[in-house]
């Protein structure tokens, strides 16, 4: 197989498209997964008291 400009263009226009879409879907699912709400909420609040002593 010849490594040519066209090969790279074809690769980036096919695989590049799909892996980026897959990543966006995966990340959106992670960010909005309902059962993670508590963990994210806790993380957001955790920095407010981190210099006032141990959290737990």
């Amino acid at each position: 197989m010849e490594i040519s400009h066209e090969l790279f263009v074809g690769f980036s226009k096919s695989f590049g498209l799909f892996y980026l879409i897959a990543l966006s879907v995966g990340i959106t699912l992670y960010a909005f997964w309902p059962s993670l709400a508590g963990r994210f909420d806790k993380a957001a609040k955790s920095i407010l008291d981190d210099e006032d002593g141990p959290c737990r």
Partner: peptide
């Protein structure tokens, strides 16, 4: 400060 330390 009263506290600003790592947990045990």
């Amino acid at each position: 400060p009263a506290q600003d330390r790592p947990t045990t």
